[in-house]
């Protein structure tokens, strides 16, 4: 009898420890990023481009990477919305009654969602070479778009699935067209959830390095057109962190702090929106 109690207590302690490990890991990650990055996050750092080459120059900041990352992820997110939103609506409104087809599409989306970003990167590079495009903002945007479409479709699809069927039927029976049902009823019903899904996709787009490693190139300048190469925050961290020059490494730490702050903002915003969407849904 006592053995049962000892076992129970033993495992409860283990469970508590695992939970603490997870929480503490996050705290250490946040702490080490900001400890290294915040001291270098000066106005000069975020308002100037690097001088004398990003890998060797001791002067300048990371403006090129900040702007480049924003261009890239906004571009990719907007493109992905143009594809992902209609697709998710199509699944839930137009072909909702064809279960087999819907399941196949969802299955393909799940598979694409699981494909590592490096594979998208390699594929994007192959296409670039095939069409003779140079590494550029445009090539990066296209690759990242491919990479985040499944993330976005899955996110939006999940939200749309919780729209009650009755609403679908009553909208159609009032004489709305299917497009109107999709955009005016389904989308309107689930705006906060859709916004959350879009925000999360944006977070993926801005944080991923492997998909843009081949495709965007890297430069000290802020791109002025889609066909120019561009710097990005993840690659600014990746490249500059391996530099032997401490000032260059400081730029990497600052870039990490900036990237982390952006991710934090996205996380807070998406919690705000998903709270509104999940009012009658229990967490955990």
């Amino acid at each position: 009898m006592d053995l049962r109690k000892i076992e129970e207590i033993f495992f409860r302690i283990l469970m508590f420890c695992s939970t603490v490990i997870i929480a503490v890991s996050l705290i250490i990650i946040i702490f080490s990023t900001f400890y290294k990055g915040l001291p270098h996050l000066t106005w000069e750092m975020i308002s100037k481009t690097p001088k004398g080459g990003f890998y060797f120059g001791k002067e300048g900041g990371i403006l090129n990477a900040i702007v480049g990352s924003l261009y890239l992820s906004f571009g990719a997110t907007i493109l992905a919305i143009l594809f992902g939103l209609p697709l998710a609506l199509f699944l839930n409104v137009h072909i909702a009654h064809r279960r087999k087809l819907v399941n196949v599409v969802r299955f393909v989306m799940d598979l694409l969602w699981g494909v590592p970003s490096i594979v998208y990167g390699a594929f994007g590079f192959t296409i670039m070479v095939f069409f003779g495009i140079r590494a550029s903002l445009l090539a990066g945007i296209i690759t990242v778009t491919l990479f985040i479409i499944p993330i976005m479709v899955r996110g939006i699809d999940e939200v749309l699935q919780s729209v009650p069927r009755g609403l679908h039927e009553s909208s159609l029976s009032l004489g709305s067209t299917r497009a109107e049902t999709a955009y005016k009823v389904f989308l309107k019903q689930s705006v906060p959830g859709v916004v959350t899904a879009i925000l999360l996709s944006f977070g993926r787009a801005i944080g991923d390095a492997a998909s843009i490693l081949f495709t965007t190139g890297y430069t000290d300048h802020i791109p002025t057109s889609l066909s120019q190469p561009t710097a990005t925050l993840p690659l600014a961290i990746f490249f500059q962190l391996s530099s032997p020059i401490p000032q260059v490494r400081d730029r990497a730490y600052a870039a990490a702090a900036v990237l982390f702050i952006i991710i934090l903002i996205i996380s807070i915003l998406s919690r705000f929106f998903s709270k509104r969407y999940q009012k009658n849904k229990i967490n955990f």
């Binding site: 997870i22 996050l26 250490i28 991923d208 990746f238 990490a256 990237l259 991710i263």
Partner: peptide, 28 residues
């Protein structure tokens, strides 16, 4: 309260870019 604490922790952990994990690996 543990749930309320851990939910954002897990969400945030899932959203951190891999370069930052890599940097953390090098630093820690």
């Amino acid at each position: 309260w543990v749930l309320n604490l851990m939910h954002p922790v897990i969400d945030l952990l899932a959203g951190i870019p891999s370069v930052i994990f890599g940097m953390w690996g090098i630093l820690v």
